[in-house]
Amino acid sequence: MSLVRIRNVHKSFGALEVLKGIDLDVAAGEVVVILGPSGSGKSTLLRCINHLEAIDRGVIDVDGAQIGHTMRHSRLVKLSAAAIVRQRRQIGMVFQSFNLYPHMTALENIIEAPVGVHGEPRAAAIAHAHELLARMGLADKATAYPRQLSGGQQQRVAIARALAIRPKLLLFDEPTSALDPELVGEVLATMRDLAGQGLTMIVVTHEIGFARDAADRVVFMDDGHVIEQGTPAAVLEAPTHPRTRLFLSRFMRQ
């Protein structure tokens, strides 16, 4: 069974329909990269999966539970705000602009949710955080504040922060787009490591190289639709849809 199951999802902002019937499945342990032009609805889809945005139509299930809704006496009811908050706790998210807590050190950033939200004992959370920082190559940065770190280091702390809650699913929204070109590589390398470790990841990115060698599947979105998906080899080397071809040709030329 798939970990994430998305069926006929529609989402509008006012009169603007951004998602126009999305179907997508992500199996446990799978790494899915979503590509597509700006404004095609990639971020919106990601944000719908952890209910940062509410969908207008369709169904999203994560690990067998419907996001934002539940069946009660064979009637579908919206979950309370508190229940939605609880649902999100199994999903980690990494943002384009990092969004680290600037008043906390790297270590404090990482243990905040495990201790404060998940009720993990502080000592265990700190040990786990040090382990994660070491994995990110940041063992010596535990006491640094975000502003004292480079963009690449900040994003790796943000990845450690997302991993610290032991998520069932990790969402990445353009994690390298805010980075200087020379810092992109270190973050992508970290993400490649994670991809090889059986984590379930949905990654929105413009890094075709990462899609080629880290993704199990590439999904191409355009104008609120999934127009093509398949193995990286199939979608990147032999795209069938003209819009995919157009998009990729722009990137390949670079």
């Binding site: 940062l52 649902q87 980690g92 998210m93 602009s97 939200v117």
Partner: peptide
């Protein structure tokens, strides 16, 4: 983005506000 992060990590409004 800070509000986004607290939402994404499943913090309640009161907790996010305080911490």
């Amino acid at each position: 983005g800070q509000v986004e992060a607290t939402d994404a990590f499943g913090m309640t409004r009161a907790y996010a506000l305080r911490r």
